[in-house]
Design a protein around this nucleic acid. Structure first.
Lengths: 219, 219, 219, 219
DNA sequence: AATGAATGAGGCTTCATTCAT
DNA sequence: CATGAATGAAGCCTCATTCAT
């Protein structure tokens, strides 16, 4: 008994096709990983034939790359926008920065990219390098610059330079992963977490400044 | 990892086999994920025939489970051992706790499990639940207990209770992932990171206590 | 059975494929049974690639089912047509019925189904039930009806009702199996066998009627 | 997690081993056919190790052959015993013969052999030839001799020679198969069937004799 | 005599990819 | 541009059989 193939053919503007494929691929990759995703799944989700994909991409890997490249854009832009919000006293700016960063967590694509980095990074040195240079390094740099500004403005003690700024960002990554892994089992209140995270950083930085001040006062 | 067993004759090593297979499987799973790993890879790495695997495991999934079960052991034990080192003043204990936790980072298996949780968690609700209950939850609990002790001993201010303790642990996860993802490109100095992490937590907690003291003093 | 399709180029014959596959599968199943048949055999006999089969059937079992369903059709139709030939006196009709039934023996598919019933029946309750309800039961019913007509027409004695009508049909099954099993060694002359079979049944039925008549006469 | 192997080792007299294996093999072959039976099944049923089988048989096929050879013995003996019961008038002897033949139907082994002949005959020309020569041919011969005796004793008309005696035996085969195939669904009352079968044959033969007598009388 | 260990061949099935319309 | 048809490579798994104790 022969199988029945669905016959619904959507006629779409051709320009949109690649993006539709990427879109579909992304969802599949997110759910099942690279190896676990089949072109059939992608095609079905995109509402096209399996072979049509090959009009736009050479291999499964190419789709994967394109999907990731496309999805990482917003995050890159956000990181680039970081220094643009350096306006106001340190605490205000830090709060704004946190708002911006935590807003990324709402972007499922951003999270998936992060997860992909972990899952498939070993086979994607290009992505790894890109991510580190364009996101991690620039983020670190911005954070360092922010602290520097705080010191210059006499809002922070110079001893605050001692911290590896990745310590300040780590909880964001943690929250992202927690949501992805344990989200259904035990959801995390992102907003609350953000507030406490901010508080922690401020407290720690203030502790140094307080000590400085105290030391100064003691003199 | 080169094969160092001669292949001429059939080997008889029933006792060692399961562990050898798990060992080999682990490496493969780590590199390529569950779906990406083939029994052929595992067999080759273990230096045995593909079918020999089936003398010890029923399915590919069974190998995966066994590998995870075996690898997660040490971490579980370490978490269980946490409260046993609650001896001394708060800072000392916290330092010991950090030593213990960061030591886990040297266990590649532990890291791989963590990565697996992220990569394949969607398909492994059992592992997810187990990990959350036996590792995350107990770790949180121990950390909370530790802070409580600090408060009771008057070393910390009660306001320290406000923090979500996952904030204190997040950098460890971050360091683990960093090492795994960017390790080759940009290795992280774990020891240095640990020190700063410890410092950050202490500073933040002290900030509260200092505020309290200051407030008390001001009265 | 040699392959007579050229193999150089990919062939496109969607419409014909399912039947070709069923045809090939049928021969293989007949020769080696379900478990003994491999998709490789079927594919080779059909002159296609092993995987092409999966374009038309989901599993090996599905092929088997399709093959049987297709092969059993004619027999079912013949059984259904039985009562349509109830025209004429008893002997004439019986002769026609026998012609129809024995003609089935020329249909190799019908024989194979019968053999399959025997070989694989234990694993195919559905087929068994179907065969019994649609072929055996209806055949029995038709035969009973025929005898009833003979009695009503005063051509047969009512005592003819005593026979289990399966006795009348058994030789057909026997001939079918004999041909299949011992055919090469010791072929059976189906036509001759049919005549004698018919004679036997008529003789037996007449014996009753004769007795009745004799009894009547004696009275 | 390694599989657990049962460790119960039965120490048995070695002489019995081959028969135990054959016994076990027979049951398995009956249930699943040759291709469907695995040595593991046989070994397990025999309570021995898979490899032990090879101490007694060279291949799976050898076991099959041995099993069949052993099982066919009783039937052969019964057939051989047929002519020994030629004592009494025709009807009595025929009744005894039928008793003997139908008793065979209670021997599940005999039925299985018959089924095997159908299922796997194509690959077992030796068995086919043996069965035909030792069982079918001798059975036919005995039946013919019996009829001849009836004619000589003037109990039957010479015209009874016209029948292919396989017609007389067919219902037995039919009943055997019916029981095996439809037995669970719709069991057959063997005794009742036997009586009617006997009656049918007697009626048919008598019809000829009656005709003869009538003809003689008419003269 | 008996068995635990090991394996090569082969079976079913999936899938990325190519062919030809 | 789009797709239905087809396939080779590869994956998981079973099994008859051999090896070595």
């Amino acid at each position: 008994m022969p199988k029945d193939q669905p016959k619904k053919t959507r006629q779409r503007r051709k320009d949109a096709r690649p993006e539709e494929i990427i879109e579909a691929a992304f969802v599949e990759f997110e759910e099942k990983g690279f190896a676990g995703t089949s072109l059939a799944n992608i095609a079905q989700r995109a509402g096209i034939s399996r072979t049509t994909i090959y009009l736009y991409f050479d291999t499964k890997e190419a789709i994967f790359e394109a999907a990731i490249r496309s999805a990482v854009q917003n995050t890159v832009q956000d990181v680039g926008a970081l220094s643009a919000i350096f306006d106001g006293n340190f605490e205000t700016v830090l709060r704004n920065v946190f708002d911006l960063i935590y807003a990324r967590l709402a972007d499922k694509r951003a999270i998936t990219i992060f997860k992909t980095l972990i899952s498939e990074g070993q086979n994607m040195p290009t992505l790894v390098k890109f991510y580190r240079n364009e996101i991690m390094a620039k983020g670190e740099f911005a954070m360092k610059a922010l602290i520097e500004r705080g010191i210059e403005a006499n809002e922070l003690s110079p001893s605050c330079r001692k911290y590896d700024v990745r310590l300040f960002i780590a909880p964001v990554a943690f929250a992202a992963l927690w949501g992805k892994i344990f989200g259904e089992l035990d959801p995390i209140d992102i907003n609350e977490f953000k507030q406490q995270h901010l508080q922690l950083v401020l407290d720690a930085l203030k502790a140094n400044s307080a000590a400085k001040l105290a030391g100064a006062r003691a003199t």
